[in-house]
Amino acid sequence: MTTISNLMALVTAATSGTETAKSADRATGRLLDAAVLEAAHVGLARITVEDVVRRAGVSRMTAYRRYPRRDDLVAALVQRETDRFLAAVADGIAAATDPRARVTEAFIAAVRFSRIHPMLRRAGQTGSSLSADDTAMLLEAGSAFVATQIAGAGNQPSQQVRWVADVCARLILTYISAPPTDPDFGDDAELRRFAEEILTPMVARATTP
């Protein structure tokens, strides 16, 4: 499972422009980019290596050398897109110094990312969902990330902070996969008011001595 230190290492690498060996591999990048589009088209549960290979324009041998099983491709896809999501959120809150403002900015950045991400847009439009294991991984990573942001770099999140972070992560994931009409997810000003009036008080209580 993803630890907080490992998660923050991933986010730091992503936001600084450092690439892993896999992301530096052009063929791997093409495969994962194609997998994103294929998952957006048919759903994550229905993608096949063969369809991704055709969409990516690489050979079957190239694909199977990297991902011997379909599950390996799906796992790599979910991990990369999770890293990208967290990096986008980290960018969105980089300028915020108040822990309460960080959660607001994290929420807004997460929604903005979901608006343009093919897989997340499909989830919002069709109600399709990730597997239980993938959802658990996303929640763990998101909760750990939010807890670190609330507590501040170098500080160990308290139990109350971890609870609030878990609530925030679950709320964000639910709202992304099934966007409400109120607040309007297309209106950043309304999102900000929602975050400040609903999420900020929770964070304030968790961080008040």
Rank of each mutant, 00 (worst) to 15 (best):
A153H: 14
L173D: 10
T148L: 05
V167L: 09
P157Q: 11
V161C: 04
I150T: 06
Q160D: 14
Q149M: 13
N155W: 09
P157K: 11
Q159Y: 10
Q156Y: 02
A153R: 14
G154S: 09
A165V: 04
Q159E: 11
I172N: 02
I172M: 08
A153W: 13
S143V: 15
F145K: 02
R170G: 15
N155V: 15
A165E: 00
L171K: 05
R170K: 15
G152V: 03
V146K: 10
D166Q: 10
T148I: 07
R162N: 15
L171S: 09
S158Q: 01
V164I: 11
V164P: 01
V146F: 10
I150S: 05
A169Q: 08
F145G: 00
L173E: 10
V146W: 07
W163T: 08
L173C: 00
Q160E: 15
A165F: 09
F145T: 00
A151N: 02
I150D: 02
V167G: 06
A153G: 05
P157N: 05
G154A: 07
Q149R: 15
V161A: 03
W163A: 14
I150L: 04
Q149V: 00
I172H: 01
V167K: 00
A151T: 09
W163N: 10
N155M: 04
A169C: 08
F145N: 03
L173A: 15
I172P: 01
F145P: 04
V164R: 08
F145D: 05
V146Y: 10
C168R: 06
D166S: 13
A165L: 06
I150H: 02
A153I: 09
D166L: 05
S143K: 07
A144G: 08
Q149H: 02
Q149K: 11
L171A: 15
L173P: 00
S158N: 06
D166F: 06
L171H: 09
I172A: 07
